[in-house]
């Protein structure tokens, strides 16, 4: 884990005004993401996680404060960043093959042959070397999300952002995808910022968990996760420390500890953001 900060947010705040009423979603957030670090951001539904991610991805201009990547202010569509959308069914283009979908971000930046080679190797990386010429809709949900991950990888980003990437796949697929993302990070050394509702998932994956809370949202806690780089679904989750951390995060979020996964949050923030 490097110590150099890749992403730096300072005084980051955001507000919406609808019909003359201004609502502040994000208070004044301060955090960094170090090079190669895996950061999970958790928080109760509607706290503004997606707004934060959209600010990080450059899709939304924060009202206050700044975000820098490698010291440069974020621009819309920064090549150092790439994003895995929550809704794989809608973020992959159904009229393009798997290969063409993955190669798409490289258009205009590399010659055709190189685009193809890089896309093929990204697809191999996620274990989809054998469905290059299929269409996304011919694949299972888990496979489609792998395609989306490959598309994010192909631009060789410094940071991959993920917005609840596993919210709509089944439990087994989810675990496999979690391990895939860990492996990709360990192998590629990029930083990952992953937004999730799922406390177990956050603790299992992250080097550090950032807990958001309050209205407007503030950073409630910055919790380092001491499990090292190599994790295993059963063993890691069985560690006594895992349970402690889970209890602690639960308390911070204020969610009832009944083991339920909170319902997917697809609240207004994103929709509002899309209109800006």
């Amino acid at each position: 884990m490097g110590d150099v900060a890749v992403v730096e947010a300072s005084g980051l705040g955001h507000e919406y005004s609808t019909a003359g009423v201004t609502t502040r979603i994000l208070g004044s957030l301060e955090f960094i993401v170090a090079s190669g670090e895996f950061v999970c951001i958790v928080g109760p539904s509607g706290v503004g996680k997606t707004t934060l991610l959209r600010c990080l991805a450059g899709l939304l201009r924060p009202t206050f404060g700044s975000i820098t990547v490698d010291g440069h202010p974020i621009a819309r569509g920064n090549s150092a960043l790439s994003l895995v959308f929550q809704d794989y069914g809608r973020s992959l283009l159904p009229w393009l093959t798997v290969l063409a979908n993955v190669a798409l971000p490289l258009k205009g930046t590399a010659p055709r042959a190189e685009r193809r080679d890089r896309a093929v190797s990204a697809l191999h990386e996620v274990g989809l070397g054998d469905v290059l010429e299929n269409y996304p809709w011919q694949l299972s949900g888990g496979m489609q999300q792998r395609v989306a991950i490959a598309r994010a990888l192909v631009v060789e980003p410094r940071v991959i952002l993920m917005d609840e990437p596993f919210a709509s796949v089944d439990a087994q697929t989810r675990e496999a995808l979690e391990d895939l993302v860990l492996r990709i990070r360990n192998h590629g050394g990029m930083s990952v910022v992953l937004i999730t509702h799922d406390i177990d998932e956050a603790i299992y994956l992250a080097d550090r968990v950032i807990v958001l809370g309050g209205r407007p949202a503030e950073v409630r806690a910055n919790i380092p996760i001491p499990f090292g780089r190599h994790r295993e679904q059963l063993a890691t989750k069985a560690e006594p420390e895992f349970a402690e951390l889970r209890a602690r995060v639960h308390q911070l979020i204020g969610a009832p500890d009944d083991g339920r996964r909170p319902a997917a949050d697809q609240g207004n923030p994103r929709d509002e953001g899309a209109r800006q």
Binding site: G77, S79, S91, G108, V155
Partner: peptide, 19 residues
């Protein structure tokens, strides 16, 4: 979401229309 995709991956105006 498609618009977000084109923004995140910095697609040119032309490429956005065509693809």
């Amino acid at each position: 979401i498609m618009r977000d995709v084109s923004a995140v991956f910095r697609m040119s105006t032309w490429s956005r229309w065509v693809n």
